[in-house]
């Protein structure tokens, strides 16, 4: 089980193209994150857990669905680590599985109002569903 998880972590790192080993756990990403207050695993911790191969823990994390890909973490990281890409890569390992969509499309009409731009709906479906 553990070996498989390490392999998964390696795959996540590969598709993210992030050099997570450059991280020195300064926490600047978490400090900069505008959505951090609602994350169960803050970005710097996310990088740490991934470095230690704990993909299954991260796959269950609410952080996946709070990250907005606003790139504040990536832009301010002093080491060129890109936490947003790592979060995205883990999110993809989840939603690429059959039936693992995060948004129930049938319920969408209830949350969409007439002024909501298409951009919002397309973005959300891209980020949360496959």
């Amino acid at each position: 089980m553990q070996i498989r998880e390490m392999e998964e972590a390696a795959e996540v790192l590969r598709i993210s193209t992030v050099k997570a080993e450059n991280c020195m756990q300064c926490g600047k990403c978490s400090a900069a994150c505008p959505a951090g207050a609602r994350m169960d695993i803050l970005p710097h911790r996310f990088v740490w857990e991934l470095m230690n191969g704990r993909v299954s823990l991260l796959a269950k994390s609410g952080t996946l669905w709070q990250c907005l890909s606003c790139f504040a973490c990536s832009a301010r990281c002093p080491r060129g680590v890109d936490p947003a890409r790592l979060i995205e890569a883990v999110r993809l390992t989840v939603i690429r599985r059959q039936g693992a969509n995060s948004i129930n499309v049938d319920e969408l009409p209830q949350v969409i109002d007439e002024n909501m731009p298409q951009q919002a709906i397309v973005s959300a479906l891209r980020k949360y569903n496959k």
């Binding site: 300064c26 926490g27 600047k28 978490s30 400090a31 900069a32 002093p78």
Partner: peptide, 27 residues
């Protein structure tokens, strides 16, 4: 406090330093 600062903003009359507390794992 072990943790870097992500942003400094003005709040009320003073400044707010948005940082991490890495040891506590909090913002």
């Amino acid at each position: 406090i072990k943790g870097m600062v992500g942003k400094v903003t003005e709040e009320g009359g003073g400044l707010a330093v948005h940082a991490s507390d890495v040891a506590a794992g909090t913002k």
